[in-house]
Amino acid sequence: MTPSLRMRPPRNQADPRAVAWWTVQALLLAVPLVIAASLAYWLLTDRPVWLGAIVIAFGLACLGFVVLAPRAYYRVERWEVTGEAVYTRTGWLTQTWRVAPMSRIQTVDTVRGPVQRLFGLAGVTVTTASAAGPVKIEALDRELAAELAEHLTLITQNTPGDAT
């Protein structure tokens, strides 16, 4: 039986600058790894050819990761805020859709990491009373993130109840 229902993608994509931000993050992870691998190969071994090939292959894999992963993320990361709920989609191999209703939102935070700031980006984290993890919108334009956070805070303040 083929399914006939699915989650529709949220309306909005991340800010295009997110690709650059994620690339920098990937570089911060990959460059030290590749340097360490090369140094270890050069200094600690007798430099056999087969090991050299493996190190080169590893370097190429890292390069591929740095080039492709941010673009792949950009394609899958989506978000949407309606009058009733915050809705996000994340993940590449395992896709995850999260929905948090406005009436159950407890806190709204904006998050700005050091690298994120360089690109004028910010994230919005929305938590509910559940201990199972917040809903995060990762890469938004700084102004937009601030506006969104304010909008969400205003709505949740006007909703009665303790949101549990």
Binding site: G91, T94, Q95, T96, R98, P101, A132
Partner: peptide, 8 residues
């Protein structure tokens, strides 16, 4: 208070 749908 919310849903998380995931699919590998």
């Amino acid at each position: 208070v919310g849903w998380t749908i995931s699919q590998s």
